[in-house]
Design a protein around this nucleic acid. Structure first.
Lengths: 209, 209
DNA sequence: TATTTATCGGTATAAATTTATCGATAAATA
DNA sequence: TATTTATCGATAAATTTATACCGATAAATA
């Protein structure tokens, strides 16, 4: 299925390319042009696949040279929306929520986690976390323009939190609760489940022996 | 590509089915038989897809009724290796590492995180974390049989940690460092990057408006 | 007991994704 | 300037994944 004209599979690889290209410049001091051949070798992907992927966002490949590193990087950033900063909030500051709240790695992609909400009175690195209740959250979302809601609450509360976010016109939800959230079609839900990933690993090594 | 005779796409959905089936029994009190039709509706998947997926692990579907809930649950558990407990360690007890270390959700899939290692002297809920250095880690892995290594260190140390794990014959690595680890073919590496997932969300909402 | 019904599971088809092939092209080299 | 070379980008083929269709079947119902 195509997502805004780009294949899902391609979109999922774009952040990988971006990370790679940024490191290529910043860590390895690479400048000028980079070929699909090199990218493919380094990332252990097919050469043709890389070329096709890049063709989705960038039309500037030159025979014999490859792609202009800076231009390519910029085009992927643009496509991924890194240049249009987004605001996110986290609801549920348990272990995982707190880890995400403090993670600096999202900034690179233009995403700022601006606030956290929790049922209990908590603080994060001496900054008090906002108390979670329906009124509080609604009030906050009324005044701030938030793009992404990150749900890190237990599964029995997740739908309730989701409903508030939807009611306040959030664009997207990143859901860590192991539950299928019910939302209107115009709201994007991305489910993330770390236990599932680990379970897949466990399965593969179980069936290998 | 098939992974031990099962399609990758199918394997990735099995934990989802398992979670669903467990909840169906434990939370909703469901007993007896469950049909692919019901599963598909609840999980918002195609009915045929569910039937095909289940056919990979279970041959016991009955017309008009569906699958025996307990038998199906058991077969998926078996396939995912939940019945053959695995031991894992985490290297790197930063925010994310600590969150994973304390996460109870893995037990359901038969995975026990038995130890954590960090460069700094840390403790987790009053239990001291082992000091990470090459000798320490090697010594530990020599005495304990560990199946899965979880890498949560910064990217510039990740390969070094990986090499130690490989040297000590680990079966699988779950890698949270945004770097492509070099390992021999017999070692399974599963990369996980939360920033990538979030970036994809950001991209979709950017290009929608 | 005959009929209806819901669902399974096999075969066939379609869609998405990956991989292969190759002529065209721009730079590097002779 | 002619030739060689590495890479792009288009077209085609192969593979993987998802969906459609339908006869067979076991339970429920008449």
């Amino acid at each position: 299925m195509l997502q805004n004209g780009i294949a899902k599979s391609v979109l999922n690889r774009l952040p990988l390319y971006l990370e790679y290209l940024i490191d290529l410049k910043e860590i390895e001091g690479y400048t000028g042009y980079v070929s699909a051949t090199k990218i493919a070798t380094d990332l252990e992907l097919g050469e043709v696949q890389v070329r096709k992927d890049l063709a989705f966002v960038c039309k500037s490949g030159k025979p014999k040279l490859g792609y202009n590193l800076d231009a390519l990087t910029e085009r992927i950033k643009e496509y991924l929306g890194c240049n249009e900063p987004k605001k996110a909030i986290i609801v549920g500051l348990g272990k995982l929520g707190s880890a995400l709240f403090g993670y600096e790695g999202f900034e690179k992609y233009g995403i700022h986690i601006v606030e956290g909400f929790d049922l209990e009175n908590k603080e994060y690195e001496h900054i008090p976390i906002k108390k979670f209740n329906k009124e509080n959250l609604k009030e906050f979302l009324k005044n701030e323009s938030i793009d992404i809601g990150i749900i890190c609450v237990p599964k029995n509360v997740a739908q309730e939190v989701c409903d508030i976010l939807v009611e306040m016109n959030i664009s997207a939800i990143w859901n860590f609760a192991p539950i299928r959230l019910k939302v209107p079609k115009n709201v994007l839900v991305q489910n993330e489940n770390l236990a599932y990933s680990l379970s897949v690993i466990s399965s593969i090594i179980t069936n290998k022996q």
